[in-house]
């Protein structure tokens, strides 16, 4: 479970405090189960009774490649550069060595 969660969140939290904090957050949230919500519809938005505004599907902005790339640390020509993909995050026990090797 913790591995899965860490993988989803893409943050390291695997220390005692991190796990403890998560446990406390869950305990706190568990109070919700005291509330009877039988037959209550979940509420997504406070504006649910209004029509959602949709603008015309027209291009209004663009040609800002340069500006958008300005904030990226690694890029080649007009591309953002990412390290090799499709390599899953190693399990905790292999993590240490994996991280050190790079």
């Amino acid at each position: 479970m913790l591995d899965h969660l860490e993988h989803l969140a893409l943050v390291d939290f695997r220390n005692v405090e991190g796990v403890e904090r998560l446990q406390k957050a869950i305990q706190f949230a568990d109070q919700l189960h005291e509330v009877d919500t039988e037959g209550v519809e979940p509420m997504d938005s406070v504006l649910e009774d209004r029509c959602l505004y949709l603008r015309e599907d027209d291009v209004t902005e663009g040609n800002c490649t340069k500006e958008l790339l300005k904030n990226a640390r690694e890029k080649i020509e007009e591309y953002f550069v990412a390290p090799p993909g499709n390599i899953p995050l190693p399990k905790l026990e292999e993590r240490e060595t994996f991280l050190q090797r790079s």
Binding site: V11, A25, I26, A29, A82, P83
Partner: peptide, 25 residues
């Protein structure tokens, strides 16, 4: 090393405990 490890390291270095904690919960 990999995209995912870059993500994870970036987010570990970039966010404080509070933000990471909320993401996790």
């Amino acid at each position: 090393k990999s995209t995912e490890s870059m993500y994870a390291a970036t987010r570990r270095e970039g966010f404080n405990d509070v933000v990471r904690g909320r993401i996790l919960s």
